[in-house]
Amino acid sequence: MKYTPDHEWLRVETDGTVTIGITHHAQDALGDLVFVELPEIGKHFAKEEPACVIESVKAAGDVKMPVAGTILAVNEALVDAPEKVNEDAEGEGWFIRVKPDDIADVDGLMDEAAYKALLNE
């Protein structure tokens, strides 16, 4: 997995698509998620453009695109059960699957060691 300074994670799948969500650290800081707004399938986003809206008991925020790409799938389960993100942020709590414009952009993201260093862990 790769990470951003804004606490998104990205996993490259075997078919070259990428799955995107927020990190355990992010969901822990936000508290219980109560609302998730997902983008439309087929919509294109630039790198760092907000793609999803999330609201928790503490704050509202955006999930930004770690790489530019087109939305292929959204995790519809989060619409009715946003708490899935709190339960498994880096697994079943994923937000979107994307076809990246350039898979090489993934290389510019942080690996786990760099992300842990950012968090001072």
Rank of each mutant, 00 (worst) to 15 (best):
K2Y: 13
K2R: 14
K2V: 05
D6H: 13
L10G: 03
L10Y: 07
R11Y: 13
V12E: 13
V12R: 12
V12N: 00
E13S: 11
T14G: 12
T14R: 12
D15E: 01
T19P: 04
T19F: 03
I20W: 04
G21Y: 11
G21M: 04
I22N: 02
T23S: 03
T23K: 06
T23D: 04
H24F: 08
H25I: 10
H25P: 07
A26N: 00
A26S: 09
D28K: 03
D28A: 04
D28T: 12
G31E: 03
D32L: 08
L33F: 13
F35M: 05
F35K: 03
F35V: 03
E37A: 14
P39H: 10
P39T: 05
E40P: 02
G42N: 10
K43I: 09
K43W: 08
H44R: 14
A46Q: 13
K47G: 09
K47W: 03
K47F: 00
K47C: 00
P50M: 07
P50E: 10
A51H: 08
C52K: 07
V53H: 08
E55V: 02
S56K: 01
S56M: 07
V57Y: 01
K58M: 03
A59M: 06
A59Y: 03
A59T: 06
D62G: 09
D62Y: 13
D62F: 15
K64L: 12
K64P: 00
M65F: 07
M65H: 08
V67C: 01
A68F: 04
A68M: 02
G69N: 05
T70M: 06
I71M: 03
L72Y: 07
A73P: 08
A73R: 14
A73Q: 14
V74D: 07
V74W: 09
N75G: 12
E76P: 09
E76I: 10
A77G: 01
L78K: 11
V79C: 14
V79L: 15
D80I: 09
D80M: 11
D80G: 15
D80E: 15
A81W: 10
A81Q: 15
A81H: 15
P82F: 04
P82V: 00
P82W: 10
K84W: 14
V85R: 06
N86C: 09
N86L: 10
E87F: 13
D88W: 08
D88H: 13
G91M: 04
G93T: 10
F95N: 00
I96R: 11
P100A: 12
P100I: 12
P100S: 10
D101A: 12
D105H: 05
D105C: 04
D105I: 00
D105A: 11
D105Y: 01
G108R: 07
L109A: 08
L109T: 06
D111C: 03
A113W: 02
A114V: 04
Y115A: 09
Y115W: 04
K116E: 14
K116F: 01
A117R: 05
A117K: 13
A117N: 01
L118P: 00
N120R: 12
E121Q: 14
